[in-house]
Structures are given as C-alpha cells and as structure tokens.
C-alpha cells in the first residue's frame, strides 16, 4: 500500500516542476525546473520496473536462489538514455543562458522579451 506514494511523488514532482516553469522568471531556475520534471519521469520509469524481493538483472555473482526474481531491465536501459538526453538538454540550455546573458545583461524573462513591436 505504501508503494503508491512513489507514484504520488512522481506526480507531485511533475506538477511542482511545471508550476515553477510557469511562475519562475530566471532562466537558470527554468533549467532547474525542467531537470526536476525529467527526474520525475525517470522516477516513474524506475518505479514501474520495481518488483519486491528481487535482485538487479545481473547474473554475475547473483544469489543462487531456487526461484531467481529480477527487476525489469528495459526501464533501466531507457532511463539511462533519458539521463544522457537530459544532460545534453541541460548543458545546451545553460550555454544558451550564458550567451543570452552576455548579449542582454539580464536573465529575467520579463526584461528579455525578444520581440519588437508587432506592427
């Protein structure tokens, strides 16, 4: 029963991060918010992979049990991919924030509109 709190954590993290994407105004804080969102998705996948009383899916020196139970391998492989992609996104966003700061002298998105007059 307690394990549903893992899902509650996942949803709470996602909601919190999207809320901070909506209300935070610093470019760096937006990057952090998106990192939290990505972590929540990673946590979601790894929660799906969990099985009680199971070992990691590695046969090297695994305990020799009568009935060997293992957690699911493919979500782990996928979040490995997702972590690398998240790292790439974070690095690129930080670099863009650095150059934006060099060009405009601010990180506040209310000041950096990036739009001139429409007509």
């Amino acid at each position: 029963m307690l394990s549903i709190f893992l899902y509650v954590t996942v949803v709470s993290l996602l909601i919190l991060s999207i809320t901070s994407v909506i209300y935070k105004r610093n470019l760096i804080k937006l990057v952090i918010a998106l990192n939290i969102a990505e972590s929540s998705v990673n946590l979601f996948f790894i929660t799906l992979a969990y099985r009680p009383d199971s070992t990691a899916p590695i046969f090297t020196l695994a305990p020799a049990l009568q009935e060997l139970r293992m957690v699911l391998p493919s979500p782990q492989a996928l979040i490995l991919t997702n972590i690398v992609i998240g790292f790439a996104t974070t690095a690129l966003m930080l670099v863009l924030a650095v150059i934006t700061y060099k060009n405009n002298g601010t990180l506040d998105i209310r000041k950096l509109k990036g739009v001139e007059d429409h007509d």
Partner: peptide, 15 residues
C-alpha cells in the same frame, strides 16, 4: 535575440 530564441525553442521542446 538569437540565443534567447534558441532557449525558447529548447524549453518548449523539453516541456
């Protein structure tokens, strides 16, 4: 504004 435009694109894409 070009770097900030790139930032906008990657942020929206990531959401």
């Amino acid at each position: 504004h070009a770097p900030y435009a790139g930032y906008k694109y990657i942020l929206i894409s990531t959401i």
